[in-house]
């Protein structure tokens, strides 16, 4: 694959120092052409060699790709599903040789662990949870949190996993009254967990005791907020939110991500910074990923936009490739690689610098 340079066009807002660039380094071609839904990276140990592998998810197939020759990827395992389609891959930090996926149509109906038998290396899957699942997140220390609804009751459950993908331990967290939309870990605080809710509250739990510590109302913010990252500094809680329902304003353009700061003690909070699209770019947040100080989003226009959260502005744009809109983006675990996928199942790996 010949490297290709994709740089931001000549736009006033980004016409400054510190422009980012994206260089295509590798492609994963999907011969089946079935609809692609997600991608992620994970560690996989095959015959004693631990590699950072790529997991791709199409509607009814999940595949694991191992690095082969330079810039080439070899498919080594495939799991098939017949009844319920795959919705997303659930990355769980610190886990090797275990893939977690959420299956369902519009909402999650099942969470499954995918693994290989240690005897004959054949692909296996284990059903971990079924029901009306609203939100799920992989946590550090081999844990996975999910919220589900049965009749009027909401259940928030943390599962801890054994090596074979089985659920070793279950713990319940005190649920808020309103439906949880997303979860987020607080960096460096393994015992704390955040959730965003359907009525725009941010809730904080103690994962060790299951206590619901605080409910913080961010009602002045936009609806359907997703929390991508959270960290605590100087007694304050900083969160990076995305706003799928945000509308363009004359003063600041189209906001895609927002940095908010909240005082967990008083629940007072305020927006610190809006990360907007450069002038001339249209579209709202569709899907995205935040890692360290980099945020990437697929916009409704089909373009991928990247922000440096420290610089505070958009640093790169990746327009639709071969007339096909982008469907999803993920940062890889190392060296600022961006995985961008299209509906036809092809995944493109870019190096961001």
């Amino acid at each position: 694959q010949s490297p290709e340079q994709t740089e931001i066009a000549d736009r006033p807002v980004c016409d400054s120092l510190n422009l980012g660039s994206l260089q295509l380094v590798s492609t994963l071609k999907n011969p089946s052409g079935s609809c692609s839904v997600d991608v992620n990276v994970m560690w996989w140990d095959e015959a004693g060699f631990k590699d950072l592998c790529i997991v791709t998810a199409c509607e009814y197939v999940v595949s694991l790709w191992k690095p082969a020759d330079p810039c080439q990827w070899e498919k080594i395992h495939t799991w098939h599903f017949t009844e319920v389609p795959v919705l997303q891959i659930i990355p769980v930090p610190d886990v090797c040789n275990l893939v977690f996926v959420a299956l369902g149509n519009l909402e999650i109906r099942e969470i499954r662990a995918l693994l290989c038998s240690s005897d004959d290396k054949s692909e296996k899957q284990k059903l971990l949870k079924s029901g009306n699942i609203k939100a799920v997140l992989g946590l550090s220390e081999r844990r996975l949190v999910n919220s589900s609804r049965a009749l009027c009751d909401q259940q928030v459950e943390v599962m801890t996993f054994a090596e074979d993908g089985g659920s070793k331990e279950k713990q319940f967290l005190m649920p808020p009254e309103e439906t949880i939309l997303t979860f987020a870990e607080v960096q460096g605080m393994q015992e704390s967990l955040l959730g965003t809710t359907a009525v725009n509250n941010v809730v904080i739990w103690n994962l060790k005791t299951g206590q619901l510590l605080k409910k913080i109302c961010i009602a002045d913010s936009y609806q359907a907020t997703v929390c991508h990252k959270a960290y605590s500094e100087a007694g304050l809680l900083f969160v990076i939110l995305s706003h799928p329902c945000a509308k363009e304003t004359e003063s600041s353009g189209s906001p895609v991500f927002q940095l908010m700061v909240m005082n967990p003690k008083t629940t007072l909070n305020v927006g610190v910074m809006l990360y907007c699209l450069p002038p001339g770019q249209a579209g709202r947040f569709l899907e995205g990923d935040v890692k360290d100080h980099l945020a990437a989003a697929v916009l409704t226009s089909g373009t991928v936009a990247i922000w440096d959260l420290l610089l505070g502005h958009c640093t790169a744009l990746l327009p639709p490739r071969s007339d096909q809109n982008w469907s999803f983006v993920k940062w890889s675990g190392t060296e600022s690689h961006l995985l961008a996928g299209q509906k036809d199942g092809n995944i493109y790996i870019y190096h961001y610098s």
Binding site: M174, L213, A234, L236, M262, N263
Partner: peptide, 23 residues
């Protein structure tokens, strides 16, 4: 905005909220 707009801050907010919250 200034930090003062957010009210009194505690570096041990997590421990303090855990001791105040319902078990």
């Amino acid at each position: 905005c200034s930090k003062a707009d957010l009210g009194p801050v505690s570096l041990n907010w997590f421990e303090e909220l855990s001791s105040e919250a319902a078990p």
